[in-house]
Amino acid sequence: MTGSLAGRRILVTGGGSGIGRAVVLAYLAAGAIVTVLDRSAEHAAALPGPDDRLQVVAGDATDPAALAAAVDAASGAAGLDHLTCGVGVFDYYASLRELDAAQVEDAALESWRINVLSVFLAVQAAYSELARARGSVTLTLSESAFHPVGGGVLYGSAKWALRGAVDHLSVDLAPEVRVNGVAPGGTTGTRFSGLDALGQHQTADRVPGRDERIAAGTRLAVTPRPEDHAGAYVYLADPVAARVTTGVVINSDGGRRL
């Protein structure tokens, strides 16, 4: 198999749907050997059929045991070349003005656990294998990590935390491991789940008028698709093309920030 990531061993958390799934497919197209950690059997079933370069590990990305199993499955004799963290949960623009104290506490803890703690646990679990391969990490942020758009304070503050994590981890893990991020803007076709603590059981793709609002808010007047972000991930995972790239966040938001 040829490609910019030929033979590279990659672990993707939350790679069963949406942007994560598009990234998995792009990694495979670039020749990588990919392991996906996903807690949804439905999402796992939506990935391509049996392939000697793709395996799925069922488990929760906030569970250290599941992460350890996924790292073990993904790593080869020389270690793990790359980790992509794609797990996330949305807050459907929840306002603190409309919640009581118990809801705020429960929702904030859930948002932080899934959006932020999952990343810290994944990096901790994978570090030794990444260091052996002089590998890299890509975190999934959001336009909400730069502007108060694309979500409420619970979601946005978690993504701001990941923006800081890119900087801090790129220093903490240097020189063995590069750390970067991608900050997608609003994207069509994503089955982004809401906070259980707030009873948000619908997915983002079912919000009426969402695609039109996204396009109207971008300079390119487009609504991004999951695959539109995948190229940024492929570049950052490439140890040759991105050899000196660390501590960087690529904004794939259609010019929303402008």
Rank of each mutant, 00 (worst) to 15 (best):
L109E: 12
S95K: 13
A44L: 12
D228S: 09
A77Y: 09
A30Q: 05
E129S: 15
A133E: 02
T13M: 03
G255T: 10
T245P: 08
V137N: 03
R97E: 13
V104Y: 03
G217P: 13
F146T: 01
R134I: 08
A41N: 07
T13L: 00
C85E: 06
E227R: 10
A174G: 12
G7A: 04
G217N: 14
T203N: 05
A74E: 02
V249P: 01
E129M: 11
E176S: 11
S193A: 15
L141N: 05
A122R: 01
V87D: 08
Q103K: 09
A65I: 10
P48S: 14
A102I: 09
Q202M: 15
A66H: 02
L162A: 06
P175Y: 06
L54S: 04
T203M: 09
G189Q: 09
A125F: 05
S144E: 04
G20F: 06
Q55R: 15
V34P: 03
S136L: 05
A145S: 15
E98H: 14
G209I: 10
S252W: 06
F146S: 09
L236Y: 05
G194S: 03
E110K: 09
Y235P: 00
A101G: 10
T190A: 12
T62E: 12
T246L: 02
E110F: 11
D52Q: 14
T140Q: 07
D205M: 07
S142F: 08
T35E: 02
I19E: 01
V71P: 01
R9F: 02
G49Y: 06
Y235Q: 02
Y27D: 07
S157T: 14
S95V: 08
R134V: 07
N115C: 11
V56L: 04
G217A: 15
T245G: 08
L198R: 04
A61P: 00
S17C: 11
D253Y: 07
F192G: 06
L198S: 00
G186E: 09
A65R: 13
L121M: 12
D211W: 06
T62K: 09
V104L: 14
T138S: 08
